[in-house]
Design a protein around this nucleic acid. Structure first.
Length: 462
RNA sequence: GGCGCCUUGGCGGAGUAGUUACGCAGCGGUCUGCAAAACCGCGUACACGGGUGCAAAUCCCGUAGGUGCCUCCA
């Protein structure tokens, strides 16, 4: 298994700390609003990573977090908490908002046939762990306290900017204005924020420094270490996390433990809708529900995601989603050959080589577009091979385990339907075209189409 | 303003020097009793201008357009 590693800026061979186990932490959603197509692209890619790791023979231990507190509307630590803001918007408490959108997200994961993480962990369930970590950082001299919270002193951490290759001085020379004069350094970030004086927050906890709530970054460090140890194998997230969130996670984690936090960092690039990034102001964040409403299956969404490489800036459009939908129908037609063995002089299909190449591509930095081209090649050889149910049956799980696009679990046609096909064959042999067409029409009405090949009739679901 | 990235046929999307990527859509044809989501073929695809090379979509420089981060973002 090879993967591009943001840490080394090259494609690395994945070597887990304790094979065959491999630990993976994925930065999950902040549950203050519905997930949109961009989120799903990202999580489907992470899901594909886990599938690839399993296919390479490793046993993954996968943790995904749910950010349900502390994610501010500004990384400068002066914005509102997104959950509290969502609560205000909807006339609910922050707790209710978090629960609602968490359920919506988990439901979407199921619809999209994503593997279940071994642990889905919420920030609010791990306040003590976060406090412990902050205390540890305090003892080591990495923190300072100002009016609105406990902060991490990025100057104390050597190589703070290295991971994201940040040019901190260049950034400061830009339009950025120092927001909080008390901060020692513009890059410093809050570990613990105090509740505003005279205002009751929905979510707040006691701490040694005062009542408040955790900063956004500390949760991932605390939960990752709790479930996966001080050093984990692969940490994943959206590409936007590189300069701030993941940079800060590394700073606080490695400062606390003195150890490498994660050996591999995988980042999914963003998706553009109509060549624009997805943003609230443009209102172009398409939801899964809208897609399903148009009669497009979640499997087609998955396929659309797999059609581009995770590190490229992909595009989403209804037109291309429609194309994926059509492609998927062709895949299913091939899959249904598992129920239809037709005698062919040219004997058996041999997908052994193709399947090996398919898997190799996916395990090589998740080159899913290349793997798809190989799969298409397999499908296009039906004429050559005839329909070989055994070969198809054998190939399906290998492809499905990696792609999860719904190739498994399909149903055979019914006995009466099979009988209609047999009767039609007889009618055709007798040259009774009227009867033959009538039977074909009947099957069409039941959603079954027919293709007459030299080996006999092949049915496809319409 | 600082630091990056991208530009491939109608659409999507691979491909880092010499071979048809591939898919969807379109057009033409074949097979067929008629059909077909089946088969075959077609559209002279690589933003533009220079440069290096026997050879460039693929390397270098420039131009144009787009876009990302530095502010929230998956």
């Amino acid at each position: 298994m090879r993967l591009y590693n943001t840490l080394t800026r090259q494609i690395d061979e994945i070597k887990p700390l304790k094979p065959p186990q491999i630990t993976v932490y994925t930065c999950g959603p902040t549950v203050y609003d519905f997930a949109h197509i961009g989120h799903w692209f990202n999580y489907i890619r992470m899901d594909t990573l886990i599938r690839a790791l399993k296919a390479s023979g490793l046993q993954s231990k996968w943790v995904m977090n749910i950010t349900d507190v502390g994610h501010l509307t500004s990384d400068a630590d002066d914005g509102e908490d997104k959950l509290e803001k969502g609560a205000k918007r909807e006339g609910k408490t922050a707790w209710e908002v978090a629960e609602f959108y968490t359920l919506d997200f988990l439901n979407g994961m199921k619809q999209l046939n994503m593997l279940e993480p071994d642990h889905i962990v919420k920030a609010t369930d791990h306040i003590p762990e976060q406090l412990e970590l902050i205390k540890k950082l305090g003892k080591k001299g990495f923190t300072y306290i100002i009016d609105d919270g406990v902060y991490y002193d990025t100057n104390k951490f050597e190589g703070y900017a290295a991971f994201a290759q940040l040019d901190l001085e260049g950034q400061e020379a830009g339009a950025r204005v120092a927001i909080n004069a008390q901060k020692h350094n513009p890059a410093d970030f809050a570990l613990w924020k105090f509740s505003p004086k005279g205002r009751q927050r929905d979510m707040q906890w006691d701490s040694p420094w005062g009542k408040g709530f955790p900063g956004w970054h500390i949760e991932c460090s605390a939960m990752s270490m709790k479930y996966l140890g001080e050093t984990l194998d692969i940490h994943t997230g959206g590409i936007d996390h590189v300069p701030v969130h993941h940079t800060n996670e590394i700073a606080q984690s490695e400062a606390a433990t003195g150890k490498r936090f994660a050996n591999y960092w995988m980042h999914g690039n963003h998706v553009m809708v109509n060549d624009k990034k997805i943003s609230k102001s443009l209102g172009n964040g398409i939801r899964l529900q809208e897609i399903v409403k148009k009669g497009i299956s979640p499997g087609a969404v998955r396929l659309h995601v797999l059609e581009s490489h995770y590190r490229s800036q992909s595009k989403f459009s209804w037109e291309s989603l429609e194309a994926s939908h059509n492609t998927l129908k062709n895949f299913y037609a091939w899959t249904d050959l598992q129920f239809q063995s037709l005698s062919s002089e040219k004997l058996t299909a041999d997908y052994t080589e193709a399947l090996r190449a398919f898997k190799d591509d996916v395990l090589d930095d998740l080159k899913t577009p290349a793997a798809l081209a190989i799969f298409n090649g397999m499908i296009n050889r039906v004429e050559e091979f005839g329909a070989d149910s055994a070969a198809v049956s054998k190939a399906i799980p290998i492809i499905e385990d990696l792609f999860g696009i719904g190739l498994s679990g399909r149903q055979d046609i019914t006995e009466p339907q099979k009988n209609l096909i047999v009767q039609r064959k007889k009618a055709r042999a007798n040259g009774d075209w009227a009867k033959s067409d009538e039977l074909r029409d009947q099957l069409t009405q039941e959603g079954i189409g027919l293709r007459d090949t030299p080996q006999g009739a092949i049915w496809v679901r319409l």
